[in-house]
Nucleic acid binder design. Structure first.
Length: 170
DNA sequence: GCCACCGGTGGC
DNA sequence: GCCACCGGTGGC
């Protein structure tokens, strides 16, 4: 996923084809969430779209012209009426997950979800804890803009090679 | 007074 | 060492 400097949230979503490894843009967040929730059992491929094949050029390149963040596969899709927000810290150190409930309340952890459901029994048959995941994507070090100052100069963070690609929000 | 944002840490 | 979680607070 690529983040807009303005909104601090993803402004595009892309999935990588399991066969040709090209990246294809997914038009909406909800479609992206649909693909993501079953990604391991049902990996995505270009021909999932009747009008697209691996012979077609990719929609977007994985490079530093955008800030890419690789999402975890198989996150539960937010139930209807609930939106999952993924917010980038201004220093690109990490991301935060918030769930926006139908009444506008934002939840920051599973514990808060639990409390919310207790406090609002009317939602209890509609939503369950399993619908929520606060797992955050990793930010590949090369995606951190060059003009961002490293956080604590005294502490060196070690770079990590991250395997995968698979799913990504841009 | 709220809430978006950030820093710190406990537990794994 | 990582990351899910939460307390604090500055700016509105």
């Amino acid at each position: 996923m690529e983040k807009s400097r303005k909104t601090n949230t993803a402004d595009a979503y892309a999935v990588q084809c399991g066969k040709c490894f090209k990246w294809r843009l997914i038009p909406t967040k909800e479609q992206f969430e649909d693909i993501r929730q079953n990604f391991i059992d049902d990996p995505w491929a270009c021909d999932k779209n009747p009008n697209v094949s691996c012979d077609d050029p990719g929609d977007i390149e994985y490079d530093t012209r955008n800030v890419w963040v690789i999402d975890k596969p198989n996150l539960p899709k937010p139930p209807s009426g609930v939106e999952r927000l993924l917010i980038m810290r201004s220093d690109y150190s990490k991301m935060d997950v918030n769930y926006v409930m139908p009444n506008g309340k934002k939840l920051r952890s599973s514990v808060e979800v639990e409390k919310f459901l207790e406090a609002h029994p009317e939602y209890k048959d509609k939503y369950s804890l399993a619908d929520f995941s606060f797992t955050t994507p990793k930010i590949p070090p090369e995606m951190i803009p060059k003009d961002i100052e490293p956080k604590v100069p005294s502490v060196r963070k070690k770079q990590k090679t991250k395997d995968s690609q698979s799913i990504s929000e841009v």
